[in-house]
Design a protein around this nucleic acid. Structure first.
Lengths: 150, 150
DNA sequence: ACTAAACCTATTGAAATACTATGATTAATG
DNA sequence: CATTAATCATAGTATTTCAATAGGTTTAGT
């Protein structure tokens, strides 16, 4: 489970957008970049993946920025990960075209695909709404300051 | 779940050794390399990982080769994977040292570590004995030829 | 001595990763 | 209507990782 920075930053970014756009305001790349200490230019690329997957919507021009494109409850952790890297949860990725079909099938079908299907199932059970809630709650506790929306 | 060839070939190799050494004979690298269509030299490196993890034992010299170092029931799929690549099942591998501790902890502790701890649990429940049995059984069915040991 | 195996270590080529750089498009604002 | 500040698109690059290859040493049986 070595996670790429793209996936990592993407998850951070979408939670950041979700929790800072509850008031309706769009969240900009420079804002996220500063808050989360991520290169702005790299972040742009990452957000474009989330955007083309239909998870966030970008608004060009001054006063532009990103908002979440759907109901927070309808975006799952699986959606987010898959938008950023199709291989993380995917049904195994097998390199060989060895001669021993029995072996390949054994390892692929019985082992890896069971593991990846659990991952998918778990990731599907977590929504952005939950992540956002938990983030806000922990932030309040951590800083002893209530966050006000609107 | 992109699996490296090293992990893949290592799993194949240890099942191959297990199922061809039930009669007590050591299994050689050239044998496995031919049977499983893997480069002999690359396989040597992979087997040395399995060997230094104590899962297989190599015998030098003519008539040498590899045998499984323990009872097949005492080697788990987890042991095998970890011997080949410590990162596959490991508790998350997080790149950032971002400023937002709350975010990092949220994503790391609540998401990735739950996923990887499931993977570990599952991998620990599968033994080499099971894999070996299943491989032999499927091979017999596939080729309509019973495999005799001894 | 010869052979055939494990074992050890260095190097290479290719691919993936993690960015940086440049610029075009779009829209609000003075 | 020019300026500004944002998204969006694409090219390039430096570093790291991966997948082998290569060359050799050690060990043991015949």
């Amino acid at each position: 489970m070595k996670i790429s920075t793209k996936v990592e930053f993407g998850i951070i970014a979408i939670i950041d957008i979700a929790s800072h756009s509850l008031n309706g305001n769009a969240v900009t790349t420079p804002e996220i970049a500063k808050r989360q200490n991520i290169s702005k230019k790299y972040l742009e690329q990452i957000l474009s993946s989330l955007s083309s997957a239909g998870l966030v919507r970008g608004q060009k021009g001054s006063n532009g920025g990103y908002v979440i494109a759907k109901d927070l409850k309808e975006i799952t952790f699986k959606d987010i990960i898959n938008a950023l890297d199709a291989n993380v949860l995917s049904n195994v990725y097998f390199n060989t075209q060895g001669d021993d079909d029995v072996m390949i099938r054994l390892i692929d079908n019985s082992l890896w695909s069971k593991m990846s299907s659990y991952l998918q199932q778990y990731a599907e059970s977590i929504t952005l709404a939950q992540l956002c809630d938990e983030y806000i709650k922990n932030n309040e506790i951590e800083h002893n300051i209530p966050m006000y929306y609107i």
